[in-house]
C-alpha cells in the first residue's frame, strides 16, 4: 500500500488528515462564535450535537483523524531522525527562507496534543462523555448541553485563559506551515501558487485562531469584569 510504504504516500496521509482537521477547526470556531452573540443559540447547538448518533459518528471520525495524524507524525519523525544519522552538525544556521515552525512541527504538535487533553477534560468530559455515561453529576448543573456554564466556569480562571491562549498560539504556528505544506505535498503548488498558498495560510490561520481567542477572552471579561452570572 503506497500510503504506508512510500515516503510521498506517508506525507499524503499527513496532508489529507491535516486539511480535514483544519476544516474541523473551522466548524468548531464558527460554533464558538455563536456563544458571543447568543448564549441560548450556543446551548441549542450543544443540545443538537450532544451524544446523538450523528455527533458520535462525527466524534469517532474526528478521533480517527487525530490518531492517524499523530501516529504518522511520530512514525515520520522517527524515520527522519534515523535518516539524518547519529552524528549531528556542530554548527547549524537556519536560512532566512526557512520558517521556524516548519522545523518544529513535532514539538508544536506535542503542545497541541497537551492542549487537546486539557480541553477534553475541561469540556468534552462534562458534556458528551457525561451524556454517553449517563452520569449527570459530571455535567454542569446537571445539564450536559449547558456549554455556556462550562465556558464561564473555565474562563473565569485566568490560568485557564492563559493556557488556552498558549495552546492557540501553538496551533497558529502549526497551521501557518501545515496549511500550505499540505497542498505542496498534494502537488498543488508552483512558483506562483506557493506565494498564494503562504498568504492564504497566514490569513486563514490568523482569522481562525483570533476568533477562537476572541471567544475565550470575551468570556473571561464577561465573567470577571461585567459580573455575568455563572
Amino acid at each position: 500500500m503506497w500510503l504506508v510504504n512510500s515516503s510521498v504516500g506517508r506525507k499524503v496521509v499527513m496532508s489529507v488528515t491535516g486539511i480535514a482537521l483544519i476544516l474541523f477547526l473551522t466548524f468548531h470556531m464558527a460554533m464558538n462564535l455563536v456563544a458571543v452573540f447568543s448564549e441560548r443559540g450556543y446551548n441549542a447547538i450543544c443540545e443538537f450535537l450532544g451524544a446523538n448518533w450523528y455527533a458520535l459518528v462525527g466524534s469517532m471520525g474526528l478521533a480517527a483523524l487525530f490518531l492517524i495524524h499523530i501516529i504518522y507524525a511520530v512514525w515520520l519523525t522517527l524515520l527522519n531522525r534515523k535518516a539524518r544519522g547519529s552524528e549531528r552538525y556542530a554548527v547549524t544556521v537556519r536560512p532566512t527562507t526557512v520558517e521556524w515552525a516548519s522545523q518544529n512541527m513535532f514539538v508544536l504538535g506535542l503542545i497541541v496534543v497537551l492542549g487537546i487533553i486539557l480541553h477534553l477534560t475541561d469540556f468534552w468530559y462534562h458534556m458528551q462523555f457525561a451524556e454517553i455515561a449517563n452520569d449527570m453529576v459530571l455535567a454542569p448543573g446537571g445539564d450536559p448541553a449547558d456549554g455556556i456554564a462550562l465556558m464561564k466556569i473555565t474562563f473565569k480562571n485566568p490560568v485557564f485563559v492563559l493556557l488556552y491562549l498558549v495552546w492557540f498560539g501553538a496551533i497558529w504556528f502549526h497551521l501557518t506551515h501545515g496549511f500550505w505544506s499540505a497542498l505542496q505535498t498534494l502537488g498543488w503548488n508552483n512558483q506562483i501558487w506557493i506565494k498564494r498558498w503562504k498568504c492564504i495560510s497566514n490569513i486563514y490561520t490568523t482569522i481562525l485562531m483570533a476568533c477562537f481567542a476572541l471567544v475565550v477572552i470575551f468570556f473571561f471579561i464577561k465573567v470577571t469584569f461585567l459580573g455575568a452570572s455563572i
Binding site: L76, A83, T96, T97, M105, Q184, G187, N189, Q191, I194
Partner: peptide, 24 residues
Amino acid sequence: FGNCTNTRACEAECPKSETIDNIA
C-alpha cells in the same frame, strides 16, 4: 533517505537554485 516536510532548507542551500516547485 528521509521524508520531506517542506522546510525549504534544501532550496535555500542549493548551489543551482533548484526550487521546491520540482518537489510539488
